[in-house]
Simulated scan of single mutants.
Amino acid sequence: MGNDVLDEALERLHRTGPEFDGWLSNHAPMATEALIQNGHSAAVHRWIDGYLDRLEETPRGISPISAEEWREPLGNASRAGDWLAFFEREAQSAPWREVLAAWWPRLLPGIAAGATHGVIRVGHAVRALLAEETPARVAELGQGLAYWAARWQPLVPAGQGPYPSSDPRTALDAVPRVPDQRLGIRHRLAQLADLPAWPQAAGAVPGAGPERDRLRGIVAAAVRRHLTYGYGNPVMLVHAATAPAAVLRTLPALPPGLAAPSLAAGWAAAAAVSAAYSAPYPDPAARSVLLEMGSTPDPDETFDRAVVSGDPHAIKFADAAVEAWRVTGDPVLLLAARHNTDLIGPAT
């Protein structure tokens, strides 16, 4: 049933644009996939009903993008309609894995695109395709790649960091915080260039062993850290976890040679979002959440709480947290997801 519902939902959303009200990302395809992945197929169409009115139609194109001249319009949001048309053709002309393998290394340096929603949308699409290949899912991958290309945004280059490679949480805590956190993500990320410690922090990719294991460690560390530092901006800081989670979900569909740059980009995204949105001090109230450790939270109840809230960020963060919990068994991951849902509150 879930597979049929996902395709129905994606077909229903296919003519909606990647953004609305300016910069706000269309979360419907991502949240829909997360709902079904976690056993909530019955809630999908009702959730879309409540979200659909805010969405806009697919933007119109300006001028077709050719396969030979893709660099110039990269990162030009006014060409979103052209990118959607371009990747619709790409997705129809070659197997989806070939399209992904060709465009992943081109788009990866711009992982900050759309507050990292470009890579996140691609990650959800790939996870769905790895479960079952259908025309609706192939089309959704094309739309995710198009959104990423239209909002392509590179981060300040990383250097080589001195922080312990075995501890992702220590590495995240060592990331410097941008000083001016009054405006949006583009303003915040632009300040990374003026932080002397940023190149080393971003280059200190933590963990040891295979890239997939290191990405799992980064995702888990970002989820745990949200418990104490997410109170300042609980919505935006979730991307410190969901962006590398999207890279992790995509790795099985990529050629092995792309694993190392994918790991580096996933870490850079987690570090950049942490620099931009972490609160200045740990939240003392988080201690009361940790006291709940006496009764281990249930993963289904954790995700159910996010579903009841209706908020797409709560849903996607709980999805990443439960996914990480299934590997590590760490109950703090579930507590962090529950706490984030409570911080965000009901969707408006």
Rank of each mutant, 00 (worst) to 15 (best):
G2F: 04
R12L: 12
R15E: 15
I36R: 03
G39F: 12
V44H: 03
R46M: 09
R46L: 13
L52T: 12
D53H: 14
R71C: 01
E72F: 06
A77T: 14
S78W: 10
A80K: 04
S93M: 04
W96E: 10
A101K: 02
W103K: 01
G114W: 05
G123L: 04
V126S: 08
R127N: 11
E133Q: 12
R137T: 09
R151T: 05
V175S: 09
V178R: 03
G184T: 02
A197C: 03
G203T: 08
R214K: 06
A220I: 08
V223D: 01
R224D: 15
H226S: 13
G230E: 12
V235Y: 02
A243T: 10
A245M: 11
V247Q: 00
P252Q: 09
L258E: 15
A268Y: 05
V273Y: 00
A285Y: 12
A285D: 12
E292Y: 00
E292I: 00
G294L: 12
T296G: 00
P297H: 05
D298H: 01
T302V: 07
F303K: 04
D304G: 14
D304M: 04
A314N: 10
I315A: 04
K316F: 01
E323S: 15
E323N: 05
D330R: 04
L334V: 13
L335F: 06
A336T: 06
A337D: 08
G345T: 10
P346M: 07
